[in-house]
């Protein structure tokens, strides 16, 4: 079987001016079959962009082997480039080119010409709802439209495998949702394998069938979103200050309560919102007087600390 991505022992470091070589990716091993959307989840600076850049042959690893769609991506880089494409969050294009001109230019980079080029441009504008902006210059587009342009550009060469680097960063929730719907369509209806990065767990959960966690340049876990979420203690974080007694055992027995940390009048709970109702938690807390209650989504950095610890 041809894997979409088959990476083993990928290492990458960047030379820095003062601190010598900075190792950004350390021994990455991944097998991605491409059947489901594959997510690479990790906090900022964990090496997601670097990894996708290596997969897309934009940059080369220092060591390791890489096969993309069955092609040796260390040697036949050009073959790989024809079959893949990449789209990034916060995309950039030459400012003064309009949507149509930018797409045309990108298509030409892939050697499309004549009728074929115009058809590809029209089709991608159609697919990503860009027709009304076709004569608008890139610099005058809204963030959401820029994002759609970036996806449209990435589909121009009819890629078999698409890399998406944090496709929803900087978008408002509505736009982000729309982009996620487009990603699903690209995968499901257009039959393209998708490997994407995100630092946002709910997004990975919604889109991806499989997730790898990247932390400080290493894959520290890889599983389905549901299983990962359990072992990574991702959920809603509830901080409570209270007086009196709380039955810690009863609390921990609630299904969906991922962790409970009780000490000296403070409780720090992590709750999987999908599985547990707050009321159940609140009932257990009734034995004490609640002085303060705070709800927050734990950010990934916290989660990673827990995983590492």
């Amino acid at each position: 079987m041809n894997y979409a991505v088959r990476a083993s022992g990928i290492c990458k470091g960047f030379n820095t001016l003062f601190r010598g070589k900075k190792e950004v990716l350390k021994d990455i091993n991944l097998l991605i079959d491409g059947e489901e959307i594959f997510g690479i989840l990790g906090p900022n600076g964990s090496g997601k962009t670097t990894l996708l850049s290596i997969f897309s042959t934009l940059i080369y690893p220092d060591r390791g082997e890489l096969t993309i769609l069955g092609i040796d991506a260390r040697r036949k880089t050009h073959e790989v480039r024809k079959l893949i494409n990449i789209s990034t969050g916060k995309p950039n294009f030459p400012w003064s080119l309009t949507v149509r001109e930018n797409l045309r230019h990108s298509g030409m980079l892939y050697g499309l010409h004549g009728r074929e080029l115009e058809r590809a441009v029209d089709w991608s504008m159609e697919s990503f709802d860009l027709h009304q902006y076709q004569d608008t210059r890139f610099e005058n587009l809204s963030t959401g439209v820029k994002q759609r342009l970036s996806l449209a550009k990435a589909m121009l060469n009819g890629p078999k495998l698409l890399f998406l680097d944090e496709p929803t960063t900087g978008l408002d929730p509505q736009m982000a949702q729309r982009t996620r719907a487009l990603v699903k369509r690209i995968h499901r209806d257009m039959g393209v394998s998708v490997v994407m990065t995100t630092h946002y767990m709910p997004e990975a959960e919604e889109l991806c069938g499989m997730i790898a966690f990247l932390k400080e340049g290493r894959i520290v876990a890889q599983d389905t979103p549901a299983r990962l979420k359990r072992c990574l203690k991702i959920g809603e974080r509830m901080r409570i200050r209270y007086r009196g007694d709380i039955d810690a055992n009863a609390l921990r027995a609630i299904p969906g309560l991922i962790s409970a940390d009780l000490s000296a009048g403070r409780a720090d709970l992590v709750i999987d919102k999908n599985e547990v109702t707050f009321s159940r938690v609140m009932r257990t807390l009734q034995s004490a007087e609640i002085l303060e209650l705070e709800l927050e989504e734990p950010d990934l950095e916290d989660v990673f600390i827990e995983l590492a610890g």
Binding site: N92, F93, P94, L109, Y110
Partner: peptide
């Protein structure tokens, strides 16, 4: 131009 518009990735990820 690619550098100023920060779009150099688009060029070098393609088979040119």
């Amino acid at each position: 131009f690619d550098m100023w518009s920060k779009s150099i990735k688009n060029t070098f990820v393609s088979p040119v």
